[in-house]
């Protein structure tokens, strides 16, 4: 998951000629080569941050359309992978925002397995709980209730184990903003879990 950042400079060097060819005269074979090379990176960014009702291929297309549109403004200061990931993150946020459904999570919304996972979470035995998928589903439902940016930050930090610096590189957002959002989002998640447990 974190490999694409390390590869960033060499990827940029390999693709510079194709990027220039596309910018100069809209060279389509060059654009195809760029897409083929960058497709795995784009998919690794959008997979796992996908809104429920959006196909990942549609989102990937949108990322590449914006990538080619904005390529003229790429100045090479940030590695290409970071620049691309910022575009991908923004596309995901726009898609999440378009879904714009953040209802309050209720006990009745949880399946039996998810309710068990919630009980195990509060009891502190979730690490040994047998149903891994239910814990994942419960996590997704809790994240669905967050603001898009908060969700992205919590997902990167708490579920993918990224540092604030890494989130900063991938999103282009400021360090203090990321910390504040992460703090607020975690507090909201804690409250939601405890409120659900009380209301059952």
């Amino acid at each position: 998951m974190h490999g694409e950042e390390a590869k960033a400079p060499e990827v940029a060097a390999d693709l510079t000629a194709d990027m220039a060819a596309w910018q100069r005269h809209g060279d389509e074979p060059a654009a195809r080569r760029l897409m083929a090379a960058l497709y795995p990176s784009v998919m690794s960014i959008i997979r796992g941050r996908l809104p429920r009702r959006v196909a990942e291929e549609d989102l990937a297309q949108e990322v590449f359309v914006r990538f080619f549109e904005k390529l003229g403004s790429y100045d090479g200061r940030a590695p290409l992978a970071h620049w691309l990931s910022r575009i991908a993150v923004n596309v995901c946020i726009d898609a999440l925002r378009a879904e714009a459904r953040r209802p309050e999570l209720r006990w009745a919304d949880l399946s039996e397995a998810e309710a068990d996972a919630l009980n195990a979470t509060v009891a502190g035995t979730i690490a040994e709980a047998p149903d891994v998928a239910a814990a994942g589903e419960l996590t997704t439902k809790l994240l669905d209730a967050l603001d898009e940016k908060d969700r992205m930050i919590v997902q990167m930090m708490d579920l993918e184990g990224r540092t604030v610096r890494e989130v900063q590189e991938l999103t282009g957002w400021g360090e203090s903003g990321i910390k504040i959002r992460a703090f607020r989002a975690r507090r909201k998640l804690r409250k939601t879990i405890l409120a659900l447990e009380k209301k059952r």
Binding site: M35, A36, R190
Partner: peptide
């Protein structure tokens, strides 16, 4: 922190599927 316990468990035990390598 219940969120920390849940997110730790989810991170440790579930893996995001590998992204496809070809378009």
């Amino acid at each position: 922190d219940p969120w920390k316990k849940l997110s730790d468990a989810t991170r440790r035990r579930s893996r995001t599927p590998e992204p496809p390598t070809e378009m």
